[in-house]
Design a protein around this nucleic acid. Structure first.
Length: 224
DNA sequence: GCATTAACCACCG
DNA sequence: CGGTGGTTAATGC
């Protein structure tokens, strides 16, 4: 498959660029298929690329010395992440890890910065994305404190279907219940219980190794 | 009561 | 077979 077409369909910002900019992006973007569990970016490494999830699912997480791990957010296909460390030219603060077999694009960091210098639409896109992320994290902090476990799972799943951050996704998401548990900060057993309750409410369907969302608005509003 | 960890075991691909 | 998920028992808040 050709790169230009892939970016047109999996990078909402690509269409905003002029011909010369698109040409340079095509030249400076690499694509790789990676296995589940691959660490795409290591905490502590100097950021040198903007990361696009063309297919699959990735998580942003940190671990501590005791082996405890906190998953901070999931990023499904259509998502572009890692601009924070790129903008500040600093070391990555989190690990980026593939939750399943994924196709990952890397746009060279200097090209990313060149787009920032030369394209107002690109800046607008980033501003918009950052704004949406802030809203998502504020919401996460809120429901993390206020909502019951079933509703926390509902919101976490709804986040992964955010049409502004991850446009053009289907209703099916391949993710294990254990990983949903990490994202919602609860045990696998409790996550399983929550999923069954959401299924009983007709909001989603639980299938082996995946969930299928039936009612996204219902998920967002669950428990309120 | 409710959630968590740990352990088993069955099922799926 | 390895990964996933249902279940249960022990323990903690």
């Amino acid at each position: 498959m050709n790169l230009s077409r892939v970016l047109e369909t999996h990078a909402a910002w690509f269409d905003l660029l002029d011909d010369a900019q698109q040409a340079r992006v095509l030249r400076d973007t690499t694509i790789a298929d990676i296995e589940a569990g691959t660490i795409i970016e290591h905490k502590g490494a100097i950021a040198s690329a903007w990361i696009g999830v063309l297919d699959g699912l990735v998580k942003v997480s940190v671990g501590n010395a005791d082996g405890k791990m906190a998953s901070l957010t999931g990023v499904p296909s259509g998502g572009w992440i890692g601009e924070g460390s790129l903008l500040k030219r600093e070391a990555r603060k989190y690990d980026i890890i593939a939750l399943r077999r994924s196709t990952i694009a890397r746009l060279r960091g200097d090209t990313f910065n060149w787009l920032l210098d030369g394209s107002i639409p690109f800046n607008r896109f980033l501003l918009h994305q950052l704004n949406e992320r802030v809203a998502q994290f504020i919401g996460k902090a809120e429901h993390d404190r206020l909502l019951a476990p079933d509703a926390r799972v509902a919101r976490c799943l709804a986040e992964l279907f955010n049409p502004l951050l991850y446009p053009g996704n289907s209703t099916r998401l391949e993710i294990t219940q254990e990983e949903i548990g990490y994202l919602a900060r609860m045990s696998r057993q409790r996550t399983n219980q929550a999923l069954r309750s959401l299924e009983a409410a007709g909001l989603l369907k639980v299938v082996y190794g995946a969930v299928e969302v039936l009612d996204l608005d219902g998920l967002k509003a669950f428990g309120t």
